[in-house]
């Protein structure tokens, strides 16, 4: 750990400000709490919100895992892990089971989380109503009045035009029966994992300066209609590496001859399954 930084990079006053905001976020599930987002040593869009939330909760005994689209070995994940190794000296891991804090961009791990873990989401645009109503004052009022008709109209228009709800990521949810929330651009495949999760889920949007939360064991419903119930993506083939039939698959182009591979986006989940297969051999 480099002695030139305060523990976990942020100064203590910034951490206190974030901690106070996080407490309110937990007490009002799904509501976006404004916070004074700081300049971070990387650009917006690279997880500045998630990093600030992680820095506010992280302690010396934590074991940190960072994933980007499910993978531990992509640029964003590698550099955020290195950032906290340098500024906080914490242990890092690629194993979901061993982590106490998991920062994620756009996925929820396949392995069920447990109570001792905190999942920190990187969020680009926290306001689920933003593309329906650009004015912040109006969206705030809509949340205040629980006026979510416009969101249902949007989903209905999908059904009217395409015959089904076409939203496939950042699929809006209602938290604890009150606030409609953007779960960040996770695939809707992951939405069911938000519900009744034993781990605390925290969301940080750096550019938009908002944090929000889903406490453990909270009701999280994906918006839908009685005759068009919410459903998740399915694939007609298993993972090409581990054979999993119930995980989220990425399509990887393997050559310039049209070759394609479908494999788990969660690299730790896939590796664990392959290790087990090797042991059984």
């Amino acid at each position: 750990m480099s002695g030139a930084y305060n523990f976990a990079y942020l100064d203590e006053q910034t951490k206190r400000m974030l901690r106070r905001a996080l407490l309110k976020a937990v007490a009002i599930p799904g509501y976006q709490v404004p916070f004074a987002s700081r300049d971070m040593p990387l650009p917006y869009g690279w997880g500045t919100g998630g990093i600030q939330v992680t820095a506010a909760v992280l302690g010396q005994d934590d074991v940190l895992k960072v994933i980007d689209q499910g993978a531990d070995d992509t640029t964003n994940a590698v550099s955020i892990r290195a950032f906290f190794r340098k500024t906080a000296g914490v242990a890092t891991t690629e194993r979901t089971a061993e982590a106490t804090v998991i920062q994620t961009r756009h996925r929820i791990p396949e392995r069920p989380l447990h109570a001792g873990q905190i999942l920190v989401f990187q969020v680009p645009i926290p306001e689920p109503l933003r593309f329906l109503e650009p004015r912040e004052r109006e969206t705030r009022r809509m949340h205040g009045l629980a006026d979510y008709g416009a969101m249902h109209v949007k989903l209905y228009e999908d059904v009217a035009r395409m015959g089904r709800i076409t939203t496939s990521f950042a699929y809006p949810v209602k938290v604890a029966g009150r606030y409609v929330m953007d779960p960040s651009p996770i695939p809707k495949f992951d939405n069911p994992k938000l519900h009744d999760c034993p781990a605390l889920q925290l969301f940080g949007a750096g550019r938009e300066k908002r944090v929000y939360a889903i406490p453990p064991h909270t009701t999280v419903e994906s918006l839908d209609f009685e005759d068009h119930p919410f459903e998740v993506q399915r694939w007609d083939r298993p993972c090409g590496l581990c054979g999993s039939t119930d995980s989220y698959l990425d399509e990887v182009v393997t050559d310039d001859q049209g070759g394609r591979l479908f494999c788990c986006s969660d690299t730790d989940f896939c590796r664990e399954r392959r290790d087990r297969m090797d042991e059984g051999r």
Binding site: K15, L23, V26, A56, V57, L58, G59, L200, A213
Partner: peptide, 13 residues
């Protein structure tokens, strides 16, 4: 302060 905040966060959630 960090540890005690985490304890409070646990209790609040």
């Amino acid at each position: 302060a960090q540890m005690q905040f985490r304890d409070l966060l646990w209790a609040m959630s």
